[in-house]
Amino acid sequence: MTRALVLRAAGVNCERETLLALEQAGAVADLLHLQQVISAPSRLDEYSLLVFPGGFSYGDDIAAGRVLGFELRTFLGAALAGFVARGGYVLGVCNGFQVLVDTGLLEGVSARPSDRTIALTANVSGHYECRWVTLRNERSACRWLDAGVLWPTPVAHGEGRLMFKDEATLKRLEERGQIALRYVTREGASASYPELPNGSTAAIAGLCDPSGRVFGLMPHPERNVTPWHHPRWTRTAPRPNGEGLEFYRRLVAAAGAVNA
């Protein structure tokens, strides 16, 4: 049984659908406030999956994910590094991805946050945007994801454009198998706006760390779980659930193998 911890702080607002998706995917999921973990970091030991859900942590003030990222760096840096080093899985969705990027956890466990080479910044459109897009699982260090699969997911963000320090960063991420998800057209071809909703470099929608256990993505798989989430469900045959559930099932299963 996978035990998942969903971490919240002021402004986190996707905990409902995230908990529902995790539970439906077979996990036992708890919701804790950041302060509860800061005051007892050993609570992380109870879990094999740590989830930073979407929202506007601290209002996205300064920059999306910055303040929560700062707090994690300041108060839980070692605890998080230890959690990952022990084989724990970490998922950051949307604002959670922005937080993960800010902590430097996606750079690889040894990197210091100040050496960060990855950034998420304002969409090229200049504003927040909510729409459904198509993702393609890339061949990556995330072996729990089925490479090549196309699946629909909603995005809803204003700062989802991935940018890198330099060309070498992108090359390194590719070589290490850290590029896990790309925006594509419905048919799987290379995407431009609006299928690529934010202008992300190389159309990247999700990244993992070199181990494949720390994973962040801008889209919201937990908002494509019920039979009726998809905006075109009225145009298709009845479906048992949304494609996002499969994402969580695989993640929960992979994290469940940690303790086994």
Binding site: H127, Y128, R223, W228, H229, T234, R235
Partner: peptide
């Protein structure tokens, strides 16, 4: 499109429909 009409994951019919 500038409003998050998906958050909380309760949506069944969205403001915009169709292919």
């Amino acid at each position: 499109r500038q409003y998050d009409h998906e958050v909380q994951g309760m949506g069944v019919l969205k403001p915009l429909c169709g292919e």
